[in-house]
Design a protein around this nucleic acid. Structure first.
Lengths: 124, 124
DNA sequence: TTCATGTATGCGAATCTTTGCAGATATGAA
DNA sequence: TTCATATCTGCAAAGATTCGCATACATGAA
């Protein structure tokens, strides 16, 4: 198989793994450092089993790694730069602006573009 | 719905649209300029109807635009930078190196990282 | 109008993903 | 050992995507 195709397929695999709102939010959460499954589940308001499933997919594709401490599993991005790369995607979002208001995108850009403050009001 | 979630969903949509080997190859082809459906179909060795289907998805998400000249439809990237952005994904591929040999990735990186020579041997 | 060509669309079958839930496993405390 | 907590895995139903093919549409030539 031509290498062009192999790489297209591999790239498509990475894209497919990232292409899920929950997983993107997990990556977003992990930007600010490692976190355990339960905290992630609370932050995303999802059942722990679902978060665990997403994490295991991300882990299988080496986008995250885990560190176990007692019964808690702490996850972190294996390549923190990947989050920055995803952020750049927001620019294309801006460019296309399909179905999302400019202000929504702007505030989201702020969330992604800067490290999110740990304590400030974030109930949007 | 919190804007974080809206944007995660929108980003996921873009990722999902890109997350297909044929569509990535289409984007790759279009890096070197506009091209009509038939040329793309030949380059990718796919039926024209399939290419047309992929293009219409890309078009619906404004990743490509078309220009009609007679019965030919020429497509081009609406934001050529998006191809560059995808290329950066190759770096994560390198970092993960799952199931792809280093030399395959290297040659693919060359294909993506540089404008592909129009005539040179490219039968890989 | 008729024909050939280039592109687009529709549809069912096959395939892959996501979801919700039940149960399994692992760890630490009592 | 037993219990509670944290996480993981398995499975079937629901949902989404892809594929192959047939057919429709649009354009230009005769």
């Amino acid at each position: 198989m031509p290498s062009r195709q192999i790489v297209a397929k591999e790239l498509a695999d990475i894209f497919r793994v990232i292409a899920h709102a929950d997983r993107i939010r997990l990556i977003e959460e992990l930007r600010s450092g490692e976190s355990d499954v339960n905290s992630l589940a609370e932050a995303l308001e999802l059942p722990g089993s679902r978060v665990s499933q997403h994490l295991s997919l991300l882990r299988a594709h080496r986008l995250v790694e885990d560190r176990r401490e007692g019964r808690r599993h702490f996850y972190h991005l294996s390549q923190p730069e990947i989050a920055g790369w995803i952020v750049e995607g927001v620019d294309f979002l801006l460019g296309r602006a399909a179905g999302v208001s400019a202000s929504e995108i702007k505030s989201a850009r702020r969330l992604w573009g800067e490290r999110k403050p740990a304590t400030a009001a974030s109930g949007d």
